[in-house]
Design a protein around this nucleic acid. Structure first.
Length: 843
DNA sequence: TACTCTAGCGCG
DNA sequence: AAAGCGCGCTAGAGTA
């Protein structure tokens, strides 16, 4: 079979043993194909993996039979030329089952690229069943891959045992294509029902997008109802939905979904039904709470928890394929969603704290965010267009400056791209011979803003301006355009987007709009409404104070103070710094000259706002302290503080000063250190930490016996996660309560940004809602219901008006008053005109 | 042609 | 010895 004189490809030239095909095991019906001879189990790893599942002595082959040079992978051409031998072996051995390990193996058989798409999905070819999986070589680089390979090998063993690709036996689905079948289904819709839909896309507002099928599943039975699909028998699918809707309402069905926010939102947008109100259990969210570190895809979970076979079909089938295949796929989704519900409900029972977060916070959040995403945010389109022109202007101006800077550079390329970091690096460090100050993670010379700020060249400034304008344009102008539906954006919130319990946001990401207001203020209220942002002030610091039981922090908060201000003033007081400014402000506050310490005391008492009014420079100081507070609070070391001070304030702090600043911080808040120790110990002993709500943050790396960077990282996460996560949960509690207390005729929530909620209020309810949201923020009722009690008071702030340009209620009311005056005078003039012309003005 | 990675930067 | 945490989006460049 082998040809030791093979010269079909270049590999044979530099290879010790040409065409290294083994003999033996030639009667096996099981074959394993690896990448190269080295991967053929001679290290024992594959054998060990296989024998774990009772597979002994298979026939080993490989995609290429000459070992490539160290560190080199065989090329496609080489695999193709070696394919001959692979096929020869298959013909001779006549295996029934073949395990394909790695990219090269699957390419050899199928000429198909992308192991990740094929992995774990058995296929049949000329009477042989193939199963692709990863190459075991990956285990060496990432131990986590072993579990996946192991699962695939288990599936392989199952295939061998069954003699065929396993199909789910309990799947009994009906394609609901007649009225009779529909009526029979409706009769059975009661209690817990899994629900899923198939669609032509991901964005329900997309033109021509359709819901192609609905799926319902109860124990032992699934139904697939063709929707807007070319094979659908329903000429009036809306009526079918209405019938189901009536049944769901009447029976108060408990709907079970996997990422139901998606399905409910589509149903609301396309059929105007509010099925999210019946959302009872979401398996994706449940799994997110049970294991925040892994993926939450339905297919993976079904494989892991239920040993399910892979039922995925290709994208075209899923999007708009034949109903026969689409329904097969859809029925599996429904079936496994219901099965997973049972598994996760059981697991949640073992973790009561997590279960409480699931039912009392996250499921209401699912229901709420269907409405929030449906509402969307309003964009002032005429301002949007103006902003685009302004950014264009800035870009052109910056380009002009850059051109001036490079006019003298000889053979400056025509097509130079200022947006390309490698090209800029080449210009700065090779052509202009500027010194390399910093390198990127990969070791390339860095051209980041931090570096440019320290670069003494007129080019640097212009480049920063260019990048700023360019980025804003592509992020927020070009980036938003595809998502603008009339004047509305509908960002999608990922409820499972972070490991800490925060939400993330995408398409577009509302949570990263620059705060300077240039873009932010484009988001505002439509006529008749007001835009309000309400945020929980210094919430993370308050939670940290509570958890650490920090005396000084608790004192600041109970006396209505500002912790960032306290840090700032304590820091300058220690070195008796800013003497002139302190004495000046103290004098203004007291109305007479005071001594330094007395002035500090007065400034502390008066708070930052009053002091900033007297001397605007205090604003910078507080901002600086804020960042320092967060940094040290979460384990920042003094070296990073130095970098921070340099990049943000252009202050070069020496090592000693930096170390002192950290020491001072923990002297001011000594309990923070012991709290840090407690969190680290908890994580190290039990492998997870718990937040005030009962949510868990699992940190397996904290269990490592050695003090590695990985363990250090886990320890810092043990400090940060319960604070960050709970802050967001508080925010969600407020959002939930707001939506419960006000109908959408009064208040429309648009989104949350970690510690704030943004919403629209019908104009005449503004004062009432404004006051109420601040009340709720002080004490959301869910806190009491979940028996969570905090010593530290919670406070909120709210602003009315375009985002980032809002004002307090007092200011807003006085503005309204003046508007009414001008309006009524206008109306008077208009009415006298209209009387003259015989017109009447509508009230 | 389409995907993945890197650098850089916006937010809390 | 080495040390804030958590995200998403874009362009450019590399890879299959």
């Amino acid at each position: 079979m082998r040809d030791s004189n093979c010269t079909r490809c270049r590999l044979s030239a530099g290879c010790a043993k040409v065409c290294d095909i083994l003999r033996g095991q030639e009667r096996s019906e099981i074959m394993v194909i690896g990448e190269t001879p080295d991967a053929r189990g001679n290290n024992g790893r594959i054998r060990a993996l296989l024998s774990r599942h009772g597979i002994h002595n298979p026939y080993f082959a490989s995609a290429v039979n000459c070992e490539p040079p160290r560190g080199k992978k065989p090329t496609e051409a080489q695999i193709k030329s070696c394919r001959l031998y692979v096929f020869k072996q298959i013909r001779k051995i006549k295996p029934k089952f073949v395990l394909l390990m790695g990219n090269a193996a699957i390419f050899s058989i199928k000429s198909m690229k992308g192991i990740n798409k094929a992995r774990g999905r058995p296929f049949e070819h000329r009477g042989i069943i193939y199963l692709p999986t990863w190459t075991p070589g990956y285990i060496f680089y990432d131990p986590a891959t072993e579990a996946t390979i192991d699962r695939d090998i288990k599936l392989f063993a199952d295939i061998i045992a069954a003699g065929e690709i396993p199909r789910e036996k309990k799947l009994h689905y009906t394609l609901v294509d007649t009225k009779k079948k529909l009526m029979r289904m409706l009769a059975k819709l009661r209690g817990e029902v899994a629900f899923d839909i198939e669609t032509t896309g991901l964005f329900p507002w997309q033109r021509h997008s359709r819901v192609t099928a609905l799926v319902f599943a109860i124990r032992g039975k699934q139904w697939v109802i063709p929707g807007h699909h070319r094979e659908s028998p329903w000429y009036d699918f809306e009526e079918v939905v209405a019938m189901i809707d009536r049944r769901i309402r009447k029976r108060n069905v408990r709907l079970i979904t996997h990422n139901g926010k998606f399905d409910y939102l589509w149903m609301k947008v396309h059929f105007n039904v509010d099925w999210q109100k019946f959302a009872y259990f979401d398996t994706m969210i449940a799994h997110y709470l049970l294991d925040e570190n892994s993926n939450h895809g339905l297919k993976r979970l079904a494989q892991v928890y239920l040993g399910a076979p892979d039922w995925d079909v290709d994208r075209e089938t899923k999007v708009d394929g034949p109903m026969k295949e689409l329904s097969f796929y859809a029925a599996h989704d429904g079936y496994y969603t219901l099965q997973l519900k049972h598994v996760f409900a059981m697991m949640l029972r073992n973790e009561p704290g997590v279960r409480q977060v699931f039912h009392r916070i996250m499921m209401p959040v699912v229901r709420l965010f269907v409405q929030i995403e449906f509402n969307g945010v309003y964009v002032d389109v005429s301002q949007f267009k103006k902003a685009e022109l302004e950014l264009d202007r800035r870009i052109i101006e910056a380009e002009k400056k850059l051109a001036e800077c490079t006019a003298k550079v000889k053979d400056f390329p025509e097509d130079f791209n200022w947006g390309s970091p490698p090209q800029v690096a080449d210009l700065l460090y090779n052509r202009l011979k500027l010194p390399v100050v910093e390198r990127t993670e990969k070791g390339n010379p860095s051209v980041s803003e931090s570096v440019l700020m320290r670069t003494d060249h007129p080019l640097a400034r212009a480049l920063i301006e260019f990048r700023g304008a360019k980025q804003q344009r592509s992020f927020f102008i070009e980036g938003w355009k595809p998502y603008l539906v009339n004047s509305w954006l509908h960002p999608s919130f990922k409820l499972h987007g972070t490991v800490t319990g925060r939400l993330s946001c995408e398409n577009p990401n509302l949570q990263q709009v620059p705060r300077d207001g240039f873009i932010r203020s484009l988001i505002t209220a439509p006529p008749g409404w007001e835009f309000i942002e309400a945020d929980l002030s210094q919430i993370e610091l308050r939670i940290a104070a509570e958890l650490a039981r920090s005396k000084s922090l608790i004192k600041v908060f109970t006396s209505g103070g500002d912790a960032h201000w306290l840090t700032a003033l304590t820091e300058i007081q220690r070195g008796r710094g800013k003497k002139k400014e302190v004495l000046f402000t103290g004098k203004a506050l007291a109305g007479k000259p005071v001594k330094y310490n007395e002035a500090i005391r007065l400034m502390l008492k008066a708070g930052p706002d009053a002091c900033i009014d007297i001397l605007p420079a205090w604003k910078e100081l507080r901002k600086k302290a804020k960042a320092v507070n967060f940094g040290y609070l979460y384990g920042m070391w003094w070296k990073k503080f130095k970098i921070y001070a340099r990049d943000n304030y252009g202050v070069d702090v020496d090592d000693e000063q930096a170390q002192e600043s950290r020491t001072n911080f923990f002297e001011l808040y000594p309990e923070l250190e012991s709290w840090h120790r407690r969190q680290k110990n908890t994580a190290r002993t039990q492998g997870y930490v718990t937040s005030l709500s009962g949510r868990r943050r699992r940190l397996p790396h904290a269990l490592l016996s050695e003090d590695t960077p990985q363990r250090r990282e886990a320890e810092r996460q043990a400090i940060n996660s319960p604070v960050q996560g709970f802050a967001n949960e508080l925010n969600l509690m407020v959002a939930i309560q707001m939506s419960e207390e006000y109908g959408i005729d009064k208040v429309r929530l648009c989104g949350t940004v970690h510690d704030s909620i943004i919403f629209l209020v019908k104009k005449k309810y503004v004062p009432q809602v404004y006051r109420r949201v601040l009340q709720i923020m002080r004490r959301p009722k869910l806190m009491d219901e979940l028996n969570i009690h905090m010593k530290v008071p919670i406070e909120g702030e709210a602003k009315i008006g375009p985002w980032s340009k809002g004002v307090t209620l007092e200011r807003w009311q006085s503005q309204q008053a003046s508007k009414v005056v001008t309006f009524s005078s206008l109306a008077k003039r208009a009415s006298s005109r209209s009387q003259r012309s015989g017109l009447q003005i509508a009230a």
